[in-house]
């Protein structure tokens, strides 16, 4: 795409009305062209101004309270800090077990400290203590898997190649448990959750579900209940009451 073609498309792009392939070519050009970048900036400024034409509504007072409560909640649990730590230790590629174990161990220590701190606070924090305690138990299970001598792993890739989401599933037959660690997951809509499925030739078995925090999600699973050896493991986005999987978002096949 040259400067003239970019000029023809700038306004549509700024309005979000360019087709995906056109938008990608425009972005490629603009990244290396200062003049077009400047023009695009102007077009985006004008496009954003269109929002000011709307009839303004006062946001409900409860919205302000919800937002402030949400920021407080994240701070109190120190979760963003922990997630930053986890992200920095996020296992990619080979040799992830050690890294994941360190991340898990560190996470567990942090959570233990958080749990201890929270117990010293008043009764209103009990629910948060319970949540943190549950996460701590999950981390302990994860550590047990990672420490097992027969730990195995498989990487789950996104079926939609436009997302950078990914996951690693690790399991130990001797421990009879498995753990799924996901990263870069998109946020869910209200009522939705990520569901994990073991897939065989004819059946799908739900292994559990989880929510995400800042793109990260995890689930530990008891493998004792599986009636047959699975061929694959998948993660789909479902409503909480879904009993059958829709399209898999992340998927990996096991080596048989």
């Amino acid at each position: 795409m040259d400067c003239e073609q970019v000029g023809q498309l700038l306004d549509a792009y700024a309005l979000g009305a360019a087709e995906a392939d056109e938008a990608a070519r425009l972005e490629e050009h603009v990244a290396d062209c200062v003049r077009c970048w400047s023009s695009l900036n102007e077009a985006q400024q004008a496009a954003a101004a269109i929002a000011l034409s709307t009839a303004f509504q006062r946001a409900p007072a409860s919205l302000r309270n919800r937002i402030l409560a949400e920021t407080e909640r994240g701070e109190r649990l120190g979760v963003p800090k922990l997630m930053q730590l986890l992200r920095s230790l996020w296992p990619v590629g080979a040799g992830i077990v050690t890294t994941a174990a360190v991340a898990s161990l560190t996470f567990a220590f942090f959570l233990q400290a958080e749990v201890n701190d929270l117990r010293d606070e008043n009764d209103q924090l009990e629910a948060q203590v319970e949540d943190a305690g549950e996460i701590l138990n999950e981390q302990r299970q994860l550590m047990a898997i990672l420490a097992a001598p027969d730990v195995q792993q498989v990487r789950l890739d996104a079926t939609d190649h436009t997302t950078s989401a990914g996951a690693v599933y690790q399991w130990s037959s001797s421990a009879g448990t498995g753990a799924l660690l996901c990263n870069n997951l998109p946020a869910l809509q209200e009522g939705q959750e990520y569901k994990v499925w073991f897939l065989t030739q004819d059946h799908s078995y739900e292994a559990g579900s989880f929510q995400t925090w800042d793109g990260i999600g995890q689930l530990t699973m008891d493998l004792g209940d599986l009636p047959e050896l699975p061929l694959a493991i998948g993660v789909s986005i479902e409503h909480a009451d879904a009993r059958e999987p829709g399209q898999m978002f992340l998927l990996a096949e096991f080596e048989q």
Partner: peptide, 8 residues
């Protein structure tokens, strides 16, 4: 900007 974001 809360009202503007909400209205948009």
């Amino acid at each position: 900007y809360g009202d503007l974001v909400y209205s948009t």
